[in-house]
Amino acid sequence: MNRPPSQPAAGQPSSAQQPSDEELLRRYCHQGDQAAFEELIRRYQRELFGYLCRTMGNPTAAEDVFQGTFLQLHVKCRQFDPGRKVRPWLYRIATNQAIDYQRRQRRHRMGSLQQSVWSDGQEMPLGNLAAGSDQSPERLAIQEENRRRVLHALAQLPEAARQVVELVYYQGLKYREAAEVLGIPVGTVKSRLHAALQKLDRLLHRSAPQQGLDAEPTTHEFP
């Protein structure tokens, strides 16, 4: 799974004793088990909040949408198809909530990656974003510069392509799950991601120098 090894994947219980997301939702829906619902929120808080921060570009807005997402889950839990997975459904709700929120705010595009309020050092100090807080100021500055460059390139992608990159690359969803979230065929997800990555490659080569990038510590290793 495409996430730091320290974080167990939401939806995949880390041990055999822990109930699955689907079981938790079933308990809440049919037995009114509040603890199950709280556990579900706790499992997804880091993953979903990160996704929403990246999507909304604002931790305050992300929190509003996060709450709205679980409110919808609470309201519509009886509509959940027991044969399916909770994770794509939750992402779909969150994505729709984010779109609704931005419409209400009269924003026509997800300017998150462009504006990136949480990255400007006011709401979220730079040190919190770095992989290791004991790094030198120079390395932190290089990392921040690289991060801004990637965010800028991502912001230049079309909305549909950016959603696919966000879900498959950053959130680690499978092609099938991303297709379910976005309501499009799996083949469309593949082709959009392929095209988006090629465009990102061109954009990143055209932009700032690569110095320091290779040396940057990464949270993820590809197979």
Partner: peptide, 9 residues
């Protein structure tokens, strides 16, 4: 190359 943007608050 896209890794630097993975960090989220």
């Amino acid at each position: 190359q896209l890794e630097p943007a993975r960090a989220a608050p």
